[in-house]
Amino acid sequence: MNPIISVRGLVKHFPVRSRGILRRQIGDVHAVCDVDFDIYPHETLGLVGESGCGKTTTGRLLLNLVPATAGTINFQGRDIVPLSRAQMRPLRREMQIVFQDPYASLDPRMTVHEVIAEPLRIHGLYRRETVRDLLTTVGLDASHGNRYAHEFSGGQRQRIGVARALALRPKVLVLDEPVSALDVSIQAGVVNLLEDLQDELGLSYLFISHDLSVVRHIADRVAVMYLGRIVEIAPVEELFQRAAHPYTQALISAIPVPDPRKERSRRRIILAGDVPSPVDPPSGCRFRTRCPKFAGQLSEDERTKCAEEVPALTDHGEGHQTACHYAEALALI
């Protein structure tokens, strides 16, 4: 099967400017660095990592909401990176986004009907009935359209955000932490809704999240990002059962499990220190400054390799790719 989106060598640098009137550029934030991935039709690719790893920027880049510094994003046989805002407009019907914050992402001055109608109006497809149908699709009452977003709870608002994204019948949805702001009892309903919609409408998802439990539940494949790079990408079961990159291993081991007996007996890999600044990332492997393997197991020669050579994503079979010179699968759950 051909991928619906192919990303190759995607790079995003944000300029860092000096203070004062001159505002000279004094450096770059390396937000996304040489990222490759594919999304296949009817697939959910989970993109996980901690704050500042570049996962949100990657989602924005995919929709051309921020211009890429380099790289290609191939969507339906066409590179969208060089497209202007006007040229992007027809493609907006194919790709949409759901945001994390169900409060900030809906215009407080608009009724729910107006919020959902907006994409239809922009593309000249508005029909009252369509909006009502969308409300029912996401599990809301069609009569709720003339209320304002703030009259709804967080979970309901997130459903409104989903309805707006679905209005143009897109093929790809970027879901940027869609359930992170919701209470657990509400979160499950939205997760189920997203799964149902995918089955029904044949959508492809890029599911961006810091919550590995939700990602394990919803994703087919998972990409793990650290400091702007993808360090590991694998089918979901493969990743959670045989994580091979030391960062992925630490990440998985750090997730608390709501099961007291398992939790008491688990082995936890505690990372030292903090994420380095993306303005001046470490040479070679960006994870080496916190890597327990680098610190504890590797010889001097092996470490030199980590510091000098950027590890490439290499396939270990089953579509399991790891960017570590000394990758070694480990079961952690």
């Binding site: 657990v184 439990s213 919803i218 709501p258």
Partner: peptide, 10 residues
């Protein structure tokens, strides 16, 4: 508890 996605369940 039932609404929690679990990292330890395949």
């Amino acid at each position: 508890l039932g609404s929690l996605p679990r990292i330890d369940e395949s």
